[in-house]
Design a protein around this nucleic acid. Structure first.
Lengths: 208, 208
DNA sequence: ATAAAAAATGAACGTTGTTCAAAAAAAATT
DNA sequence: AATTTTTTTTGAACAACGTTCATTTTTTAT
């Protein structure tokens, strides 16, 4: 059975080659400027081959979006396991911001672009598949917020909507930046508006 | 000169017809599912005519994005001119949220879709045109925040980054919703997560 | 009634995602 | 070693997209 296992490995390797070529092109020239033909060229295979390994473009985008979440997970490893949960929460936000700034295209794919989720909806078993990657990441945030509440922070607040709101703060600022809504504005310090904005949020957290 | 002025009016009328047809199609079937041919059909004119009145698709998207800002301005008229600036700030956020929920496609066009700003960049005089609509709206927010600071709220905070952060909160939650990142998650009360999240932010404001 | 100007047209172009019969390569069988 | 079967790869072809522009139609001026 040595040929069968080898074939399986080769299939997986080509799959990864296509994925990594696509990712490289995305970062180099933007997602919307990358075509299937570009990806095929970059892998030295034909368009038809790409479609053997991926159902359609959305499938590629979904797989790359999943890779993005795994990379975000890598960033989160930086969080020092300090005792104070509020301190961990603050670090989470900072790292989330850092990831978005350093990987704007990946961030966009993970949290803004609709295609990856369309691919989920298409393989509908019961109408709508769950967004596992998003759920997982949100649960990390939510459990940190819960730790805060348990330690006496955020009195009078509710865990889930508070977590969503906190997600909204960082996501909102990241997305305004990535979707060029900060560039068109005339900030006093445009190059640091993201971290400056986040600092204001941290000040609020200290008062709560 | 009666014919010349009538022609001018007729040109403007057709221009508006195209814009309104486009807007209707956007709302009905989504922006990315609306083609120039759709718009031409809806106006009972040909594709070529559309291109007489608009340089390209981005020009249409930009004009519609501007209309969106004017509609948002209409929503803001609801804000009661109450003395307490913090109360006005809270209302602003609520209305911003309401606008986004009631006009998701328009909101997306105004704050997420890149094409309207691409159109701005294309008529570059000096490299990059200013995003007047965004600047105007942000200034309203910023001056309300300034009023708050002047009345003793937000001590220790800086006007501009604080305003950006507040924008981020509401924009972030709206965009997670519009870009289907809340649907994939399993919230306890999915239908009210936006307003619930905003309520958490209001609680924070009351402590600051 | 005729000439000049303006407005509207739709066929055609290049590019996109996608498909699929045919060709090429690899594996299995005799 | 030769042949058959299976797997893999291919790229021409399709429909739909944004866009252009020579031509036609309509309107205005003479």
């Amino acid at each position: 059975m040595t040929t069968a296992t080898r074939k399986l490995r080769e299939k997986e390797e080509l799959r990864q080659l296509i994925l990594q070529s696509a990712k490289k092109l995305f970062v180099e020239k933007g997602i919307e400027n990358t075509t299937i033909r570009n990806i095929a060229d970059a892998t030295d295979y034909s368009v038809g081959t790409v479609y053997v390994y991926f159902k359609d473009k959305n499938a590629i985008l979904h797989d790359l979006h999943t890779i993005g979440f795994s990379e975000l997970g890598g960033y989160f490893l930086e969080i020092s396991p300090v005792d104070d949960p509020l301190e961990r929460l603050k670090q989470m936000g900072r790292i989330y911001l850092k990831f978005a700034v350093e990987n704007p295209d990946m961030y966009d794919l993970m949290f803004n672009i609709k295609e990856p989720l369309k691919h989920l909806a298409e393989k509908e078993n019961d109408g709508c598949e769950a967004w596992d990657e998003g759920i997982g990441t949100f649960n990390i945030l939510k459990s940190t917020v819960k730790d805060c509440i348990d330690k006496g922070y955020f009195s009078g607040h509710e865990e889930e909507p508070l977590s969503f709101m906190i997600w909204g703060v960082v996501h909102g600022m990241c997305t305004l930046e990535i979707r060029k809504r900060t560039k068109g504005l005339k900030f006093n310090r445009p190059e640091t508006i993201l971290t400056d904005g986040y600092k204001e949020f941290l000040k609020m957290l200290d008062k709560v």
